[in-house]
Every structure is written in structure tokens, then in C-alpha cells.
């Protein structure tokens, strides 16, 4: 039975504990960032950030400020398009762990070459993988495969202080997601679970995906 995440954005305070913990666990170096008039930093996913919190603000119909936070990461799709595309060029560059459902980039991804690597990136409905120019490999979240193999939670989930992120057996997570959705809908009637059938990282969004991030949901 595959594993799944629930990311209930209505609980997220954008503390970025997940973003930083991911870097710490993966021992990824810091980017040299600049302030560009936004808290979102680094501005996008990159070979050294598999997870970033995206910030989006707008005024609602009553003129009240809405500030949405979106901890972005690989969705570990049930049928990963990236894997299909990669398989055509270099079988094994991207694999799916049958036990956990994790979609994993392997060292073989270095053999893809720039063109195929870009095709893999383009295939991702969520614009997740990035090409590391140094190693030539694709980079992205691996569901903390090393941790879950040892029965631990992914580090981002472990770090989350507000219960925004929950990790567990897919069946349980889907049940929880439905329960949360019902509760959230009382305040946010437009709330929905993004692409719930197709992904193992299920986002609960309070309103249209445009108010979070271009690639927050596919459907």
C-alpha cells in the first residue's frame, strides 16, 4: 500500500520549517539569494531546494487580504508522467518504489542529457524536477526514502508544527483528507483536494489554484 501526504494549506503558517529541514536533512548547500520584494526565497525550486513555500496574496470579494501559502514539492504521482518520458530515453533514470509509492530519480538520470532531461521536466504537470548542472542529474523530493525505510516520517512532515502536513498509508490519508475537507468547507466553500486520485501528495486548497501557484493543481 503506497504512502501519501496530506498538505492542508489552511493550517500552514509558512514558517518554512519544512523548506529548511529538507535542506538540512539532504545536506544541500544554500543558494546566494536576494530580496526581490517577496518572502518567497529561493524564488523557485532548484537543485538545492526540493521544497519551497510559495506565497501568494490577493484581496477577496470583500476587500480583505488573503495570503495563501503553498509548500510545493513532488506529488509522487500514482502514474508518474516523468517516469514514462524518462523510460523512453534511459530506463531506470526515474523509478517508482512499489512499496512506498515514491517516485525516485536515480543516478542514471545523468545519462538523460539536456534535451531528454528537459522533456522529463516538461512532462511534469507540476513543474517539479530541476536539472543539476554540476551532476547533470535531475533533482527533486524523494519522499525521504531513507527515513521512511526506517519507519520514520519524511523530515518536512516531522518538522511541521501546525499539523499542516500529515504522512501515512494512502487509505488513511485519503480518509483524513475528506474529513478535513468537509470541515474546511464550512468556512471556505470553494475548498477542494487537488488531483486527489492522481497524486500521493494531496493538497487541500481553500480556493482556486490560481490563488496559490500556477502549478498548484493540474485539473
Amino acid at each position: 500500500m503506497p504512502k501519501s501526504f496530506l498538505i492542508d494549506t489552511t493550517r500552514c503558517t509558512a514558517c518554512r520549517g519544512c523548506q529548511v529541514a529538507c535542506k538540512e536533512w539532504k545536506d544541500l548547500p544554500a543558494n546566494d539569494t536576494k530580496q526581490r520584494g517577496s518572502h518567497q526565497n529561493p524564488p523557485d525550486l532548484n537543485p538545492y531546494n526540493y521544497k519551497i513555500v510559495r506565497f501568494h496574496e490577493h484581496l477577496d470579494e470583500y476587500g480583505a487580504v488573503v495570503w495563501n501559502f503553498f509548500p510545493d514539492q513532488c506529488r509522487h504521482c500514482t502514474i508518474p508522467l516523468c517516469k514514462d518520458v524518462a523510460d523512453r530515453a534511459v530506463p531506470g533514470a526515474i523509478i517508482k518504489d512499489s512499496k512506498s509509492g515514491a517516485v525516485l530519480v536515480t543516478e542514471k538520470s545523468a545519462e538523460l542529457g539536456p534535451k531528454n532531461a528537459q522533456a522529463v521536466i516538461n512532462a511534469c504537470p507540476y513543474n517539479i524536477p530541476r536539472l543539476d548542472p554540476k551532476t547533470k542529474r535531475l533533482t527533486k523530493c524523494d519522499m525521504c526514502a531513507d527515513r521512511i525505510a526506517k519507519g520514520m516520517q519524511p523530515i518536512c512532515v516531522k518538522t511541521c508544527p501546525t499539523g499542516t502536513m500529515v504522512f501515512g498509508e494512502r487509505e488513511e490519508i485519503l480518509a483524513l483528507a475528506q474529513k478535513r475537507l468537509e470541515s474546511v468547507k464550512r468556512r471556505f466553500p470553494k475548498a477542494f483536494l487537488a488531483d486527489v486520485r492522481d497524486v500521493n501528495v494531496v493538497y487541500l486548497l481553500a480556493e482556486e489554484k490560481e490563488h496559490y501557484h500556477e502549478y498548484a493543481a493540474f485539473l
Binding site: Q19, A30, Q35
Partner: peptide, 12 residues
Amino acid sequence: VPNLLETEPQLY
């Protein structure tokens, strides 16, 4: 702490 400075690098 580089990973923290990365998130909030400069005075705004």
C-alpha cells in the same frame, strides 16, 4: 546559518 539567510537574505 546559510540555510536561514537563504530564506530571508536582505533587509526589506
